[in-house]
Amino acid sequence: MSDRLDQLEARIDELRAGVRRAMRVKDTATARALRAELRAAERSWDTLVTGGLDGSPRVPDGAPQGLVTVREQAHQALTLLGAPAQPRLIAAVGEAFLGGTLRGSQLTSLRRDEERSFASSPYGRPYYLCAALTDRLAPARGLLTVSTWPLERRMVGPLSPRVDFLTCAIAVARHLSPDPRAARLLARMARNIPGGAAGDLGPPDPDRVIEAAANELAVHAERDTRDRADLAERATSQLDDRARLFGGTTLITVAGAAATAANGGAPTGPPAGPYVLGAPDKGAGATAARTKTRNTPTRGRR
């Protein structure tokens, strides 16, 4: 068996070198082919080295846990929050309050699936997870809402992201459970609200958070309510049912298209290379721009 292992290791090294060589000259076709071979060799190695005992193949990431589950979890989290939210926050709420195993990355394609379902049989479902709408009545990047909410709540005026954040913070404080993950989530939100956190340490005081958030809300509420009402009125008069839920224009994936042509937003990590002292003028170009995804969800960073 160790002979086989040796052979496999030699083969793996060879393939790896091949892949990296191909990548260096940007020969992606060869790299892809070699990579596939490499994965196969690595799988054989894994099987062999574990003696086939631990043969339980790992569930690949993103394995279907049933769309309904993810959808329902997101729905529950959004209902708890009561305001448009980003996948990241939805996942955190799901984890802290609903015992969920939701990951932000699972939510990225949700809106499109919902829109497709709505298109094929409108109002076939009791609720849809849909878009928040910008002042151009287009879907706002990375926000999820629930179709059964009043339209105003799903609008995004200039102050709305802040108002929604404060609303969410109050909701999280109200539902605070003994789960340490809930306390951590609240602490993280509290420190971004003036007067919300006593110090850096100790569990956050939910009453204090609610009071602080309400105080700041009072500053923004009037203008935000007005902005949202205006937008909702426009949405009602200008958009059909589908667009009212999922946005006036087709979904835009700005990041990809724009980035290749005009990206200056370089990845924030320092570049690396044998002689890199400062930052080379690399990485901000096409390669890095394409790999850059907005709203990258965090996962399991604890």
Partner: peptide
């Protein structure tokens, strides 16, 4: 001789988000 590690790129994106 440059390249950027996917870990660094991910880290940068996560932090910006």
């Amino acid at each position: 001789p440059f390249g950027q590690s996917p870990f660094a790129i991910t880290r940068g994106n996560v932090f910006e988000a």
